[in-house]
Measured scan of single mutants.
Amino acid sequence: AEEIWQQSVIGDYLARFKNDRVKALKAMEMTWNNMEKKEKLMWIKKAAED
């Protein structure tokens, strides 16, 4: 689920960090860890469908 979420937001994060992939990935990891369980559930369901 986290991978699907990352694939959907990586472009936004890379743009925000001027294509600094290391910073973008760290920010994504922090965002994922801070997400509410119900927000993650949507992505977990999406992962299950694929």
Rank of each mutant, 00 (worst) to 15 (best):
W5N: 01
A47S: 07
D50S: 13
R21E: 09
M42S: 08
K37S: 15
D12A: 08
E29Y: 08
I44H: 06
K26T: 06
A48G: 09
M28N: 00
F17Y: 14
R21M: 12
W5Q: 00
I44T: 04
K26E: 11
A15H: 09
A1I: 04
K37N: 12
M42H: 15
V9R: 03
W43N: 02
V22Y: 11
A27I: 05
K46D: 04
N34V: 07
K40S: 01
A15I: 13
F17Q: 02
M35A: 02
N19I: 01
K40Q: 06
S8I: 09
K37C: 14
K26I: 10
M28A: 03
D12R: 07
E36R: 04
M28E: 00
E2N: 09
M42A: 07
W5H: 00
M28K: 01
I4Y: 14
K38W: 13
T31F: 10
E3N: 10
I44N: 06
Q6R: 13
M35P: 00
N19H: 10
V22K: 10
K46V: 07
L14M: 10
M28G: 00
A48L: 12
D20C: 04
R16N: 08
I4L: 15
E3M: 14
F17K: 01
D12Y: 07
I10N: 03
A47V: 08
K26F: 07
K46E: 06
K37D: 14
M35W: 01
I10Y: 11
K23G: 13
V22Q: 09
E49V: 07
K18C: 15
K26R: 07
A24I: 03
Q7L: 12
D12K: 07
V9T: 03
S8F: 14
T31Y: 14
A27P: 00
R21W: 14
A48P: 03
T31E: 09
E2G: 04
A1R: 02
A15S: 12
I4W: 07
D12G: 07
A1K: 01
A48N: 09
K26V: 10
N34L: 10
W32M: 00
W32H: 01
D50L: 15
E36L: 05
W43T: 02
E39G: 02
N34H: 09
K37W: 15
E2L: 14
L14T: 03
A27T: 04
A47L: 06
K46Y: 07
R16C: 09
A48T: 07
M30I: 15
A27L: 06
D50Q: 14
A24V: 07
W5I: 00
W32N: 00
W43G: 02
I10R: 05
T31M: 13
N19P: 03
S8V: 08
V22E: 14
K45G: 10
Q6P: 01
E49L: 11
I10T: 04
W43M: 02
M28I: 03
E29G: 10
K23S: 10
M28T: 02
L41E: 15
K18F: 13
A24N: 01
